[in-house]
C-alpha cells in the first residue's frame, strides 16, 4: 500500500469542516490577523511624522516583523491541538484503525494548518502593501516595497509556518494536556523569528542574498523537523502519549 493523496485530502477536508464550527479556531484565525494588521498600520502612521531615516527603517522593520508573527502563532495554536486534542476527544483511535499511513495523517494535519495560515498571512501583507501605497507618504511606501522586504515576507511566511507546525505537532503528540501543549508550542515556535527579527530591525543588514541564504537554512531546518516528527509519529505514542 502506498502513499495516497486522497487520504491526505480526507484529513484536510475533515479539519476544515471542523474549523468552520469551532469557535476557538475561528477566533484565533480572525483575531490574530486583525491585531497584526493594526499594529503595523500604527507603525506606518507613526512613521509618517518621523524624521530621520534610521528611525523610519526601524518603524518599517517593526511593522513587517509584526506580520511575521502571524505564521508563527496561528499554526502553532492549531497544530498543538491536533494530536492531544483528538486523543482527548477520542477521535484519534478510529482514524488510526483505518489503512492510513502515519505520513498521510501527518501531512494532512500539517496542510490543514498551513493552508489557512498562508492565506491569512499573505492577505494581511497584501492589505498592508495596498494601504501603504494608497495612504502612506510616497517615500515611506517605496521604502516598504523594496525587493528585499517583499521577498522576506513572501519567503519567511511559509518557512516560519512550517517550523511552527512541526513543533506544534511534535509537542502535541507527546502531551497529555491540550493547554500545556499549546503554551509550549507557541513558545517553541518563536526562535527562528529571532533571526528574521535581527534582519528586519537592521541588526544584521538586510539584503536579497542574505534573505535567500537564511531562507534556505530555514527550509533545511523545516525538512529535518518533518523527518524527526515523522519518525516519532508512531502509533503507540499517538494513541497513549507514551511508549509501551
Amino acid at each position: 500500500m502506498k502513499f495516497s493523496w486522497s487520504r491526505v485530502i480526507a484529513i484536510v477536508q475533515k479539519e476544515f469542516r471542523d474549523y468552520r464550527r469551532n469557535r476557538f479556531v475561528i477566533a484565533t484565525m480572525a483575531a490574530t490577523p486583525v491585531l497584526f494588521l493594526l499594529l503595523p498600520m500604527i507603525q506606518l502612521i507613526a512613521a509618517n511624522t518621523a524624521g530621520n531615516t534610521a528611525h523610519l527603517s526601524l518603524r518599517i522593520g517593526l511593522s513587517l516583523l509584526y506580520m511575521l508573527i502571524i505564521p508563527v502563532t496561528v499554526p502553532s495554536a492549531v497544530s498543538a491541538y491536533s494530536v492531544v486534542g483528538e486523543r482527548e476527544q477520542g477521535t484519534l483511535e478510529p482514524v488510526l484503525t483505518t489503512p492510513i499511513h502515519r505520513e498521510e495523517l501527518l501531512i494532512g494535519k500539517a496542510l490543514a494548518a498551513f493552508i489557512p495560515t498562508l492565506l491569512i498571512a499573505y492577505a494581511v501583507f497584501g492589505i498592508f502593501l495596498a494601504a501603504a501605497t494608497a495612504f502612506a507618504h510616497p517615500a515611506i511606501a517605496s521604502a516598504i516595497t523594496t525587493a528585499a522586504h517583499v521577498l522576506v515576507q513572501l519567503l519567511f511566511t511559509p518557512l516560519l509556518a512550517g517550523w511552527a507546525i512541526w513543533v506544534g505537532i511534535a509537542v502535541s503528540a507527546r502531551s497529555t494536556d491540550v493547554r500545556a501543549a499549546q503554551q509550549l508550542s507557541v513558545l517553541a515556535s518563536f526562535p527562528p523569528l529571532v533571526i528574521v527579527a535581527l534582519m528586519s530591525l537592521n541588526v544584521i543588514g538586510e539584503s536579497v542574498t542574505l534573505a535567500i541564504g537564511l531562507g534556505a537554512a530555514l527550509l533545511a531546518v523545516d525538512l529535518l523537523a518533518w523527518r524527526f516528527v515523522a519518525a516519532m509519529f508512531d502509533g503507540e505514542w499517538l494513541l497513549t502519549g507514551s511508549r509501551g
Binding site: S4, R7, A10, K14, D18, P94, P99
Partner: peptide, 20 residues
C-alpha cells in the same frame, strides 16, 4: 469517537475516503 462538530454524513465521508 465521532467528530462532534461534523455531521453524521461528514463523519462517514471522511472514513469512506480513508478506506478509499
Amino acid at each position: 469517537g465521532l467528530y462532534p462538530r461534523l455531521t453524521v454524513a461528514e463523519n462517514l465521508e471522511c472514513f469512506a475516503r480513508l478506506y478509499r
